[in-house]
Amino acid sequence: MSADAPVVGRSRQQEWLPILELAVQEVFEIMLGSHLTLATKFDPPPQGEFTAIVGLAGSLRGIVTFCCGSQSANQIAARMLGPDIAHAEGQVWDAIGEICNMIAGNFKNKLSGLGGLCLLSVPAVVTGRALRFHSMADGDSLEIVLLFEGDPLVIRLDLHA
């Protein structure tokens, strides 16, 4: 997946990026027993075959996207469900959608002052590499790339101004 919105908003990025990273780390540590590491420029580029999207509405408006390759998606589903029942394609979509949902929820729950004023949408999952992402959100964008078993995961927050 590629995105057409620039990653901007330096001050909010400095403030919220560590919170977003912590939200992702907690989801992976608690639900999968995995610790993620920050990617460097030497790591393999993201292969976005699975993209999960969760919308934010209310006091914080925008979308959270979670993007990973098929190997990571299968491995995430296997960690969540066990290897015997995670192979069905529907289970992989479901697992990736739920990961994105938990990341979005955990992130917004960590932001003080939002309270119940920010609501999440039901997640959607898109598969395939040949897609271009056009967010209508016109505010700040934050993005982090973390490694899960050596493969990159891209987590992005696009906010409406």
Binding site: E26, V27, I30, M31, N101, M102, A104, G105, N106, N109, L114, G115, G116, L117, C118, L119, L120
Partner: peptide, 25 residues
Amino acid sequence: TTEGSESHVVQALSSGARGYIRKPF
């Protein structure tokens, strides 16, 4: 649920729920 805000907890408990667990759990 992922909806972990205080107002959601209050709404759920006042609606009749007996407990509340935030995802991830």
